[in-house]
């Protein structure tokens, strides 16, 4: 995955509570392959909020405003990503171009899946999130900065807000290490295990 260090990007205010993973990627797209370029998953991100039954963009939905086409940060209502464990929700978030989400709370599994895919979810107190939401609504297209090494979010008005993150998760994001990357740090141990295992179980040789 792509390492996450510091991100300065247009931030979009998505002031809706409890956007579940079924709204992030509706169930009927569960069979959608994720091809190189990832345009398909960018398209299905929040699909039914963004598009009507005729596949036309809903003019009144905030992410359809031209100024948010390049949004890299989302400020979200509480419980964004609650619901089913589908990992496609994290894929769609990333493929749409979002690398950081800021909210008062997130769905647990979605949060973990985002981390695996290099997307940072930042939890800030609800009044702070409400303040950011208000600033972004007052100045559409405003940019924010997320500084992961310093664990600081810089609001459009220049105010800074510190956030917490699990030290292991932070390290993995900074290094661009997902679960596979972490495991492969144990490669020598894995190979030594396998060598001994093969020696102990010679009858398994045809498929080990």
């Amino acid at each position: 995955m792509t390492p996450f260090t510091t991100l300065t990007a247009v931030a979009a205010p998505l002031d809706i509570a409890k956007i579940d993973t079924g709204m992030i990627v509706p169930g009927r797209f569960q069979r959608l392959p994720r091809r190189a370029g990832h345009a398909d998953y960018a398209r299905v991100f929040l699909h039914d909020l963004r598009f009507d039954a005729q596949e036309q963009p809903r003019a009144d939905f905030i992410l359809n405003q031209p100024v948010y086409q390049q949004a890299g940060i989302l400020v979200t209502g509480p419980d964004f990503g609650c619901g089913s464990s589908r990992e496609s929700a994290a894929y769609a978030t990333l493929d749409f171009g979002v690398r950081a989400l800021i909210g008062a709370s997130f769905g647990d599994v979605y949060r973990g899946n985002c981390m695996q895919n290099g997307v940072l979810t930042i939890v800030l107190p609800q009044p702070v999130v409400a303040g950011l939401m208000a600033q972004l609504q007052a100045a559409p297209g405003a940019r924010m900065t997320v500084d992961l090494p310093q664990q600081i979010v810089t609001a459009p008005d220049g105010a800074t807000h510190a956030f917490d993150i699990d030290a292991t998760r932070k390290e993995r994001l900074l290094e661009g290490l997902d679960d596979v990357g972490v495991t492969l740090q144990h490669l020598a141990q894995i190979e030594a295990f396998e060598k001994q295992y093969r020696a102990d179980m010679p009858w398994l040789a045809p498929i080990l």
Binding site: E87, S88, N113, Q116, D179, V180, T183, L184, I190
Partner: peptide, 12 residues
Amino acid sequence: SNQLRHVLATQT
């Protein structure tokens, strides 16, 4: 998805 990918990529 992710867990299967992990098994495929590491056999662990």
